[in-house]
Amino acid sequence: MEHGEPRGEPSGAPPRKVLVLMRKAPYGSLYNWEGLQVLLIMGAYKMQGLVDIAVAFVEDGVFAITQGQDPSSLGMKAIAKTYPALPDFEVDRFYVDGQSLADRNLTLDDLVIKPEILDAAGMARLLAEQDAILPF
């Protein structure tokens, strides 16, 4: 089963590697929120052994996981609060682009989760090893 539909039971084939790539800031558009919904759904596929899920934050995507967000006056929910709960949905591999953090004067201490920091070469290797990349 190389390109078949996902099935309800493990096929014996190695899980397909999927990377959700967060590129957009959290409140100015719905991209990040939609990426989160996809992660929650993909968690169900991971539980069936069909996929391996990783999440990488690059460019303005790093703003999704900063501490101190309070969008109550915008009538929205705090995006950052969902990320620490993702391991409960079997999504627990997080990466962040070091340059994107540095450009925005952010460090790991400013974030709600502790992703592995990658340089550009490391990020390129991560992208290269995926079967599918879903950018948001």
């Binding site: 409140y27 900063t66 501490q67 967000q69 969008p71 006056s73 915008l74």
Partner: peptide, 10 residues
């Protein structure tokens, strides 16, 4: 202010 607060920009 509301947009600063939403994004945690202090």
């Amino acid at each position: 202010e509301a947009d600063l607060k939403a994004r945690g920009i202090a």
